[in-house]
Amino acid sequence: MRTTKQEELSEPLPPLEAQRSRRRHVLDLDDFTREEIELVFETADAMKEVFQREIKKVPTLRGKTLVTMFYEASTRTRISFEQAAKSLSADVINISASGSSTEKGESLIDTVRTIQALGADVIVMRHYHAGAPYLIAQHVDVTVINGGDGCHAHPTQGLLDLYTMREHLGTVEGAKVVIVGDILHSRVARSNIWGLTKMGVEVVLCAPPTLIPVGLGPPAFPLVTMEPSLDRAVEGADVVMPLRLQKERQQRGLLPSIREYIQFYQLDLRRLSMAKPNALVLHPGPMNEGVEITAEVAHGAQSVIEEQVTNGVAVRMAILYLLMGGAQ
């Protein structure tokens, strides 16, 4: 973990001019530059210190309101945003699809306009339709953060995964990251591929051919390769990231059986031992222990899954701080 030590106090700082961020929304990582990702991480380092204080609260966003609109189940993302906003002294209102006017037939845009009129400054949206946060970003003046849209993108998860790798590896450039599992349905994989390749990481996608979408390799992503065998994919890996097998999206006959999937794609101790010594294990959660990952690996010495959750709060605090300029 990176902490400030006495001898590092006067470390020279990068020039301020290179680090300006004028971003309005966070919808995916495709429009982030490498410098902007670095700025988020450096800000997150400072936020992590705040989060480790006895009183983990600073007054920065007093009087601002963050609204979470979650049209799909979530524990960590919603709570993580709520914790991040509260640590920065913003007020938080949570809206879920059930129990809101959505049930009475109100359209998404009208709901969002209402929320804006009620004084929201930031909306974090999770929606089962890809593109929903993009749509509302066009119709309201508030800042929109994508908290996961369909199978499309989950940018803050991508950032916190990268941040966790950076903490352990120092620099991520040149590292080899294996993403294994249901890539076809994974917004986490897509945002990770944008973020990782921008930082110069070599990405290996590993899954049964039915669960790998077309277009994620070269020429669009020269650093991405496909490897259907997990035994071969993990060889020499710095990071292995199994994805949750999304059972709710497996009704289309893409897999012969869960048992066969476990046999070929479960990350267990034997397969992990073929990666680099001390290779990291990340998982975006929630986990199906015994399916894509064994309990020994999930809770083993190489797992940083719980750190990902803590880092998620720091990264989201950084995002909220950087988005809250006065030029709105």
Binding site: T3, K5, R22, A46, V50, L322, G325, G326
Partner: peptide, 22 residues
């Protein structure tokens, strides 16, 4: 680092980088 305690957080159009406090 005082950036999280500034009184002009909302009147600047970009945020100065925050560094860890120690």
């Amino acid at each position: 680092d005082i950036n999280l305690y500034r009184d002009d957080v909302f009147s600047v159009d970009w945020q100065p980088p925050v560094r860890p406090t120690f």
